[in-house]
Amino acid sequence: MQPFTYERPADVAAALAAIGKPGAKFLGGGTNLLDLMKVDAETPQHLVDVSRLPLAQISDEEGGLRIGATVTNSDLAGDPRVRERYPVLSRAVLNGASGQLRNQATTGGNLLQRTRCYYFYDPSMPCNKRVPGSGCSALKGYNRIHAVLGASDACIAVHPSDMAVALAVLDAEVEVQSASGQRRIKIADFHRLPEAAPEKDTILGNGELITAVILPPAPPGGQIYRKVRDRASYDFALVSVAAVVETEGDRIRSARIAMGGVAHKPWRAFEAERRLAGAVLSDDAFAAAGEAAVKGAVGRGHNDFKIPLAARTVARALTDAAAQKKA
């Protein structure tokens, strides 16, 4: 780790004042930031520890829930309201990391975790995300875990969060605060595609602090989170799918699909969702939705398998979500 100074402000206002210092960065649970600092992939000069800010509450709001930014992943997944109304979110969080890490990682930090690309973590390797302009080692390298959708020649990394995939399917919003005020960002807009600037994962501006995630009222229908991975646990997704399906008789009233492990951000499959709305419940409809969800996907060699894998997993998750509500 490179040297840094540290402070732990008591409230949001103090945190926002502190983040103005040169090279300052917020420290939440630290499960990813410290990890990256140890390989010099992150080199903040000043850490503003926000992990103990009074933002650890989950409260009812506008028929939905307001999740404070420092609510730990464990507390989020274990909250009775989340378990009851947003099982897809609870399941997604529980499928991520390990018990220890979930006990420490925060809601805000989870959104801001960075890619697990091997080359990003290796300071001896070119990586546009770590050192802009140095090149992308994964593009022609070992890219089995990399993106098949929305990637660019500058970066084919994927966002590693499970939680964010569920938030995407739930149309959550991210509340952020800065010295100049507060704003809400739709989760779909929060993370960026890499384009020519993969060093930027999100649209957060300098000095902006995530204070909460807002969940709108739970969508009707069955909710499923399915994570495909090499190990049975403690492993990042090869592909994950969050699906919500509302049925009416033998028809699909509405469906929502978000995918993880396939892109630089949680990937909503809007076109597939549109096709499903009003369609007759059938394996074919779900299989077609799976294919639609990966339309335009590009494999880079080792990750070619993700395209059929994502399509099949989407179809399966939709099937299971529809079945769940019927039962």
């Binding site: 040297p3 840094f4 090279g23 010099d40 992939a41 001896s124 390797m125 770590r130």
Partner: peptide, 18 residues
């Protein structure tokens, strides 16, 4: 190689003990 591919650390800075 060396720091060429890492983010450059602040030159010569120490970390005052706390």
């Amino acid at each position: 190689s060396g720091s060429a591919l890492a983010q450059s650390p602040p030159p010569g800075a120490g970390a005052p003990p706390v």
